[in-house]
Design a protein around this nucleic acid. Structure first.
Lengths: 233, 233, 233, 233
DNA sequence: AATGAATGAGCGTTCATTCAT
DNA sequence: CATGAATGAACGCTCATTCAT
């Protein structure tokens, strides 16, 4: 446990530094035609997350992106199509990175699990992509086709990553044997809730502690549990 | 752990029986005047959860409730007012029960924590109220006033219940010392995610294990952690 | 020819009196629900004829009918559906009358032909229905389905009426033998052009003679031809 | 009549040969600068006739002409201006030819009338210009200024041509005396209806006889009438 | 109380027109 | 000359809200 605490402390530093690394601007101005679609989806993502699909007006998306309403239709056939591309183009690339990371990683399962959760925070939780889970949850009922896509290409793949880590740890007798699927839920739920929270009720709440502490405590609890360990005499 | 397992097994039975206890029909037909408003909010809740506030038409709510569209305006001044009452009347009463339960409970913190989570499932997770968290998350951005109300009267009070249990357990040296607020998050997040999941992506997903197993595993992991305990020689 | 002239003179009187018999108002005010659709299609017909389908705005139709734009959608699912009903409900009933008339008529073919053309003028040419041929011509390319319907239920049936009269006259040696289909065209074209003219270029033209004279001259030319008859010595 | 029949047979040959003389391609590729405007109006005419003015998009015109949408504005100040030029440049030159033909023609009125109607078919009815009457009819209400122009420069001049022929025939005792204006209508209506028909409902209709037969029968009926001539003993 | 016909402001979408390249 | 990205006014259609019955 002492090691663990020390490690966690170190990670706090790492996480904090990660949080500062965001939004590097594109270098020059050869934008327009190429950059436009992602500018538009970025604006749309913000507003869809903030207000939901139906309550977001195309005028507002266009205004936020600094274009006129008609311009949206040069790039997306409809509001619904815009929604689909917001989801698809937004988060799928991240999964590729995650799977690459798992493949190349060496080392014990515990360290790997920590690294992956931190990486998730770095690539999703701390970026604007963090709004997608809330958005997808809110709109799944209205876009079952997109929900299906999201389930297969984001959720299943993401769970697969965690599952492999847990299996590796159980095989190495590092982790207890457990119901894998539920364990994945328990691991991811606090992280997802954090991103959901930040895009929903947090503005109506009072103070909130920093994510670094949150992640550390979550990982600590996850690894060691709530109960006081029996003393070894 | 052996004790724990036994207990969990027992709880499975309890939970399973709880899951069967739902949807008790109102006894007779003295409805109309008194029951109307709650029939309308019930219909509205279903549709708001399924489609979101903006995408739900008053026609559909009226149709589901079996009345005409104009009738809604005999009971609610506007669609927004209907939304507010759906939230307020839906979930606040449950908190009263929870606080009463905590006040009268005696016994060790571990048992109390288990009992409260099971009770939460019984009163919220297994009922139609389980849709409210998803709904509130989705609409908080559009109804900050309702979000504020929800935060103060549902979230803060609910967290207070868990916090007291944790404090009791820490004081009795049954629980480790930890960051309380994060611990509350970690405890509640999987349960909340379960209800959210059921009202969003689950229809697009394949099979899902039963909630009893889920709750048991969650509590087990929560209490004991992921790591293999060091052997005591 | 002397007989013919006398007859034509009489017909002028008949035609003139026919022209005065129009638009008898409905007696009472049990209208609303029943009368609304036909009020709306009447307003739509006027504007569709005047401006064409695409150039007619729903606002204008609603304004002319004295209702709001939304009201149109209580009776017609779309602008296109409104167009279809304007055509179908407008002119098909008239064909029923025409076929009934033919069935009961006795007498020589020449008189019957004259009577039918006059009847056509009375029921179509002199009413607001006269706008439908122009409308259908202008929009056939955009609504092939409606055009198909119009062809089968209006044009074919109408031509059938004329064809029977011609066949009756040829059998009785009253009419010359001729290519029937072309003869039908030649008979109807001036009448159709008259209605088309009145709903298109007439407002841009100067004076125009009265329809009674027009019909008389047309029938006279039709029956006797342009050439001076060779004297019989 | 025998003479007449023989003549008509000859005319069938003439007409048939005329029908084959269409769509002569421009010889070489000195196009671009000079030919552009007429390429654009030709494309516009096709689409205006097929769909009407309002329902024709500039994109479609540009696409059919093989240019970009912006290019249209290098030659026409607006869509409305394009419409005007389609009408004006399309049909006015033909009237010049007609008037020239009348001036130089010698011979009896009957032959002249036949020749003029055949010529009309050759220059208008059998070419793409045949779409203009339908177009003008459909859009007169929306473009009164163009309608006025069309009336004065096409209709009045065209009627004048026929009127002179009729007057010549009446003066020569070849034609009966009649109401001239109505006679012009009766003569032209079947021809106009033929062109209108071909650009509107014909695609929705079944088979159609050939124009040569149609013209012959029309002229025969026009000259001799429907009634059986009284036998001369 | 309950209805449902009527309303009209508002939104998604289209398309004639402009203009920088 | 020619392009095509961008615009914004306008239109079809929706739906929360009202009110006469």
């Amino acid at each position: 446990m002492l090691i663990s605490i020390t490690l966690l402390t170190d990670q706090s530093v790492i996480i904090s530094s990660m949080l500062a690394t965001q939004n590097t601007e594109p270098p020059a101005r050869q934008r327009r035609k190429q950059a436009r679609p992602s500018e538009l989806t970025a604006a749309a993502l913000d507003l869809f997350v903030e207000r939901g699909f139906a309550a977001t007006k195309l005028d507002d998306i266009a205004a936020r992106a600094g274009v006129s309403k008609g311009t949206l239709y040069l790039y997306f056939a409809s509001k619904e199509q815009l929604f689909k591309e917001v989801i698809q183009q937004g988060i799928v690339p991240v999964l590729d990175q995650g799977e690459a990371m798992l493949a190349e990683h060496e080392g014990d399962a515990r360290t790997l699990l920590q690294a992956m959760l931190l990486r998730w925070w770095e690539l999703i939780g701390a970026t604007e992509l963090a709004g997608i889970p809330k958005l997808m949850i809110a709109e799944a009922g209205n876009f079952p086709e997109v929900a299906q896509y999201y389930f297969e290409n984001v959720i299943l793949r993401g769970r697969g990553l965690i599952r492999q880590v847990l299996e590796r740890g159980i095989a190495a007798k590092q982790f207890r044997s457990m119901d894998l699927e539920t364990a994945i839920d328990v691991i991811m739920a606090p992280l997802l809730m954090l991103t959901i929270w930040r895009h929903s009720l947090e503005p109506s709440a009072c103070g909130k502690q920093d994510p670094a502490t949150y992640l550390n405590t979550h990982i600590d609890l996850l690894l060691n549990g709530l109960l006081v360990k029996e003393k070894c005499k």
